[in-house]
Structures are given as structure tokens and as C-alpha cells.
């Protein structure tokens, strides 16, 4: 097998940024507010992946990257909780979670 195909850091990073970009696409595209947050989770997840893989390639004996990923997961969880609470409250008021309809700050 050629050296080029063996996944080095470059390949890993490409995958991680691909996932991130897809997450950004979803963030900018989804109409449902929950869908938007799901895309955000995707992006966050790819960021955590980034930490872990870079940790492995550059500092194999250490665990700092894993700890970072841990924190990312935790914070993502907190963020998702609060976001969902807000959407639930918003749905109660407006009967809709359509992002396009939430434009009171226009002009």
C-alpha cells in the first residue's frame, strides 16, 4: 500500500474539517431550530475529534487532548439542554420553531 493512502495527520484533519463544514452547512440551512442545533452538535463533535487526533499525533504520551474533548462534550451537553429549553418555551409562545419566522430583530 502506498504511503500516501495511509492515514496520516493530514487525512484525519481533512475528515474532521469535512465533518465540520457539513455541520456549518446544516447550521445555515436547516429551518427547524432543533435541526440547527443538531448541526452545531456535529460541528462541536468534529472539534473534539480534532483535539483527540492532534493529541495522538503530536503528544502521544499525554492526555490533554482527551481532557479537552471531555470538556467539549460536557459543554455541548449543557448548551443543548438550555437551547432545547428555550425552543420549548418559544414553541409554546409561537406555536412554531421555524427559524425563518424568528425575525423580530430585522431592519
Amino acid at each position: 500500500m502506498s504511503n500516501l493512502l495511509v492515514p496520516g495527520a493530514f487525512h484525519w484533519l481533512v475528515v474532521s474539517s469535512l465533518l465540520f463544514s457539513i455541520g456549518v452547512y446544516g447550521l445555515l440551512t436547516r429551518r427547524n431550530a432543533v435541526g440547527v442545533l443538531m448541526s452545531v452538535e456535529l460541528s462541536l463533535n468534529s472539534a473534539a475529534l480534532n483535539f483527540v487526533l492532534l493529541n495522538r499525533f503530536f503528544a502521544p504520551g499525554k492526555v490533554d487532548g482527551a481532557i479537552m474533548a471531555l470538556f467539549i462534550v460536557t459543554v455541548a451537553a449543557a448548551e443543548a439542554v438550555v437551547g432545547m429549553a428555550i425552543f420549548v418555551a418559544l414553541y409554546r409562545q409561537r406555536k412554531s420553531v421555524d427559524v425563518n419566522r424568528m425575525n423580530m430583530m430585522s431592519g
Binding site: L28, T29, V36, V99, M102, N103, M105
Partner: peptide, 14 residues
Amino acid sequence: LQTGQVQTYGVWLA
């Protein structure tokens, strides 16, 4: 440009 929609701003941001 100020549509009030988050995703518009997101587009410009990114």
C-alpha cells in the same frame, strides 16, 4: 441585510 434571521447572519459570519 438585517433580516433578523439568525441564519442570514450566520452566512455572513462564516
